[in-house]
Amino acid sequence: MPEFMLIALVGGLITTLMTAPVGAFMLWRRMAYFGDALAHTTLLGLAVGLWLQLPLTLSMLMIALIVAVSISLLNQRPHTSSDTLLAIAAHSSLGIGMLAIAILPEARVDLMGYLFGDLLNLTYTDIAILAVTALLVVTSILYYWRALLLNSLNSELASLSGINNQQIQLLLALLVAIVVAVSAKLVGALLMTALLITPAATSRLFSRSPQSMIMGAILIGQLGVVGGLAISWFFDLPVAPSIVSLLFTFFILSRLIPPRLLN
């Protein structure tokens, strides 16, 4: 196996370790559109990075974190509709980001790579960043597991159990932002949500507990990465769309299983 394929495989497998649990919480908290909006903001982060000559992953992370915190704080104010906020944030940042990249005189950036993913161009540095981020995300989720789960079930009961709901909601928003910004290079801004949501949604059908749903989502995500890379290799097709399409196929196939076989 060529080295670039091996790096892509390792990068993809590490990524699913963090996208699966974060995606499951997004499903439980009905935050799918939040993740999608943040994924769109990575284009603005890319533009900011190019303008300020910052490392692109860092600038995408900064913008995603700023947008995540802003949306979370605005959501806590009255008279604010969260889906309106998300729609404005998503498409404004996408538009402004693309405009900024277009007018940047010396910008040499593979925009298609950031929109639809560039898994085959991962470097060892990218792998190191992904590994550290995955460790941070998984550790945070394990440490705050009870609080995150209680908050997802019922915030009033969580509050009476001594959980600070605002802190927990902010933590989850930050985790989504981190995962989206760091993983955007793999599958691209426009396909990012699929990697977060589809494995968790497929796993839900076979799961009887939150833990088993996350483990299932990791497994399905990793099958998607391995299968997507294989499809891309053997049929000379783009990697990220292959992964996303395969994950979608898993989701559809899971829906065709008769319910009596699942019980």
Binding site: W28, L153, L157, R204, R208, P210
Partner: peptide, 26 residues
């Protein structure tokens, strides 16, 4: 120490948690 029974809320069917696990969590 307060025990609170809220109004029935619409539990999200996407979150698979059994009654036993729900109690263990609390």
């Amino acid at each position: 120490r307060i025990g609170y029974v809220p109004q029935r809320w619409h539990a999200n069917s996407q979150l698979p948690i059994s009654a036993l696990d729900f109690l263990k969590l609390n």
